[in-house]
Design a protein around this nucleic acid. Structure first.
Lengths: 206, 206
DNA sequence: GTCTATATTAAGATAGAC
DNA sequence: GTCTATCTTAATATAGAC
C-alpha cells in the first residue's frame, strides 16, 4: 500500500464509494467515454477529492480491472474432473449465468475493454486467461476421448458459454426491451434454455 | 437529400471515406470515446472538411447506425416457414456468423451502442427489432407445437444465436489471443461447433 | 480530507481565405 | 471543396486555502 487508500475507515469507505461509482460509469461508456465529473457526481464527492484517493482516471480504471480479473475466472477454475462431465459443464454455465445476474456492471466493463481492443488487459488475456482455458480445454478433450462428452471443440464450447451467459448482462437493455420484462425476470427462463442447449449438445450418443 | 452528401461523384466518394473511417473509430471506442480528430486522420481529410460533409459528430454516428440497422436484421427476416425447421434455424446461424466474419466493425458498433444503453437506437429496438423477433418467435412456437423442433423458448434461442455468432466479432481480440490464431481462422471451426450445438438442441426427440 | 479556483490540454465546431 | 486559424466548451489534473 503506497497511496492513502484503505488505511483508515474513512479512506476505505471513500475508496469503495469511488470504485462503485466508477464501475457504473466506466462499464457504460468505456475508459475514454467516461468522465471524472460523472464519477464524482455519482460518488457524491468533488472531482479533486477523487484524485486525492486515486492518482488519475486511469488508476481508478485499472483498479477496477484488477479487481474484476481476480474474480472473473473463478467459475471456470471450479470446473474440475470430480463429477460427471455433462453436469460439470452445466454447473459452469449456471455459475457464469449467475455472475451475469449478480455482476452485470463487471461484465459490461470487461466487454467494453475487449471491444476497445483490450489495451489494458491484453497481457492477462494472453497470460492467466489463456493458460486457464488451455488447461480446461485439455480436461474437456479427455472427457471427449473417454466418450463421456459428445465430440465438441473445447475452445468454441467455452466461447459459446461466455457469449450466451454474458449476453444477459452486456445486452441487458436489448433483452429487456425485446421481452418486455424488467430486472432479473429473464434469468430463470435463460437458465432453463441454456441447460437444455448444453445438455443436448454435450450428452454423448448412446 | 438536404446536405451536400452524395450529389456529385467527389461528394459520394468523400462521404464514403468518412463513414468508413468513422466506422473504424466509433466501433472501437463508442460514440463518446471517439474523436473527430481520429476519424479525420484515418479518412485523410481535415477536421473541418469532415464537417463540410456532415453537420456534426452525432450526424456521422447516426448515419452509421441507420445504415447498420437497415441490414442488421436481414438474416432473421430470411428465416421462413419454407424449409425443414432445424435446417432453417441452422441456416440462420450460418448467416449470422457470416455477418460477424464480413462485418465485424458493424457488429462492434451495435454492441457499443447497446452497452452504452442504446440511447440512439432504443426506438428501433422496441420497434422493428422487437416486431421482427416476435414474428419469428411465433413461427418457432408453431414448429415446436407441431413437434418439428425440440421444445425451446424461442426468444432465448434467438438471444443465444445472436450471442454466439456476434461473439466472434465483438470479442475478436480475445478469441484470437486464446486460440493463438489470426484473421478469419476461427470461423470454420466456429461454424462446425455451432452447427452441432443447435442441431443437437433443436432436433426433436424421436 | 475536502473544497474552490485554476492551469492545461483536448475536442467539437465555426470563420474565412483560397 | 479544402484548408489554416480560431472560438468555445469540456476534461484531466493541480494549487492552495481551510
Amino acid at each position: 500500500m503506497t497511496g492513502p487508500r484503505a488505511r483508515t475507515r474513512i479512506q476505505a469507505r471513500n475508496s469503495g464509494t469511488i470504485l462503485d461509482a466508477a464501475l457504473d460509469v466506466f462499464s457504460q461508456f468505456g475508459f475514454r467515454g467516461a468522465t471524472l465529473d460523472q464519477i464524482a457526481e455519482r460518488a457524491g464527492l468533488s472531482k479533486p477529492n477523487l484524485l486525492y484517493y486515486f492518482p488519475s482516471k486511469e488508476a481508478i480504471y485499472v483498479a477496477l480491472l484488477d479487481a474484476l480479473m481476480h474474480a472473473w475466472l473463478d467459475p471456470l477454475r471450479a470446473l474440475t474432473h470430480d463429477g460427471e462431465p455433462v453436469e460439470e459443464v452445466l454447473d459452469y454455465v449456471r455459475r457464469k449465468l449467475e455472475m451475469s445476474r449478480l455482476y452485470p456492471r463487471e461484465s459490461r466493463l470487461f466487454a467494453n475493454e475487449i471491444l476497445q481492443g483490450a489495451p489494458r488487459i491484453l497481457d492477462r488475456i494472453e497470460g492467466e486467461l489463456k493458460t486457464l482455458v488451455d488447461e480446461k480445454a485439455a480436461l474437456i478433450r479427455t472427457w471427449v476421448a473417454e466418450g463421456r462428452l459428445a465430440p465438441v471443440d473445447p475452445y468454441h464450447l467455452v466461447f459459446s458459454i461466455w457469449a450466451t451467459t454474458q449476453h444477459y448482462a452486456d445486452f441487458d437493455v436489448q433483452v429487456h426491451r425485446v421481452l418486455g420484462q424488467d430486472g432479473d425476470a429473464p434469468y430463470p427462463e435463460a437458465e432453463r434454455f441454456l441447460t437444455h442447449l448444453y445438455r443436448a449438445a454435450l450428452t454423448p450418443a448412446r
